[in-house]
Design a protein around this nucleic acid. Structure first.
Lengths: 124, 124, 124, 124
DNA sequence: GTGGTCTAGACCACT
DNA sequence: GTGGTCTAGACCACC
């Protein structure tokens, strides 16, 4: 599973987002050990230094912390993970509304469309 | 303002999407004349051949049609424009739910969040 | 004037401290343009990437901000500069007391010594 | 715990300073026997020859003297130890003022800051 | 083996 | 010429 990387944003920023998603979605559990920098870099197909930069940024948000000789670990602060999760959700929602407005839908129209969309799927 | 182009999808496909958005959002009105291929290509920062391919694709969907000697025009079939608009909206909604699921939100949670989000903005 | 760099702390950390000192001491004025990354790196005798890392860290503290194509500038927030100045002073004081304690001087003895020291210099 | 050694001053000079500090601070008592050169060198993570040079230098200051077959001993001249202690303190104070001046603090400002600093700690 | 740091050299977008 | 990003490859300390 090669990671999906664009060229319109810095790679390290996309790596950050990807790893954040893996943490908040529960793929990596709180307190769990992350794969090594080199391993993650190989998985993503990027230079280890680029992955290092992404992980260092995550450390500044205290989402992960490094244990100098034994590896990197996800924070055990589940509240913080929840906060980041909600923040990312808010960003997704904001971006979604932006796209819909570009298509010419006002917020209430968008809300109506999405509500109908969920109801339809209920019937499936 | 160069167009935002990725490298993970064919350029011409991104051009199609961009022009479609401009049409359904009303930036280009039904029946209106489009700028020349050269002009559009320059705006997008792509080779005119690539833009040509995108426009040809749009013609196959009957969204635009070329008038031999006088240029390309947007269709006057507003119903068709509406259909495309709704289709693009459905794609945005689908993609949005996909992202939210990656974050760990079920559809009903997402619906609840987005509903709250709109209410909050009403109060502003 | 080659910069004094140790090997017992990361070079980039020493660069940060050096530049901070130049800012709070007034060598670089608020709002002033910094020399380019390449120039600063040459002055310090380090790789431009290392200097880049140091400057990026300073940007995270909002002490400097970069104007993508025209260079880096010192913040115009003189209050923030004062705050950093006081913080660095507190660190110096703390470190000084630590050294004096290693020599066997309690805080009050140290205070007495330093007071006498200033008086003596007054007479010079 | 390896000793903290820089590369901007000769290693042997840093060893001298370290041992001097241990003597004046009372970690090594007057008249006490020093560990062997080999042991000290191992502790500091340096070549025994380098440690030997440092100890010889200390002997020239009469701070330690060697007893042919039984090892090296700290001087029993407590007055001399006091003098060295005061000299090292003066150096620390001088260096401290230098750093504060680099930050832009005059001596009187520094004195005021450090006085306040001690008072604050009294209240804790 | 781990994370951390540093260098050298390259390319990009912007203006 | 500017800042920003990325790669390749190296060395270090720690255990």
């Amino acid at each position: 599973m090669p990671w999906p990387l664009n060229s319109d944003r810095p790679i390290y920023a996309q790596l950050i987002e990807h790893i954040q998603t893996d943490i908040v979605s529960g793929k990596y559990q709180a307190g769990e050990k992350l794969p090594s920098v080199r391993e993650l870099a190989a998985d993503a197909g990027v230079n280890p230094n680029t992955m290092q930069k992404a992980l260092s940024e995550l450390e500044r948000n205290n989402l992960v912390h490094s244990q100098r000789t034994s590896g990197r670990f996800i924070t055990e602060d589940v509240t913080m993970i929840q906060d980041i999760k909600n923040q990312l959700a808010r960003e997704q929602i904001s971006e979604f509304f932006t796209h819909m407005k570009q298509l010419g839908f006002q917020e209430k129209e968008t809300l109506q469309l999405i509500t109908e969309s969920v109801k339809e799927e209920d019937h499936e």
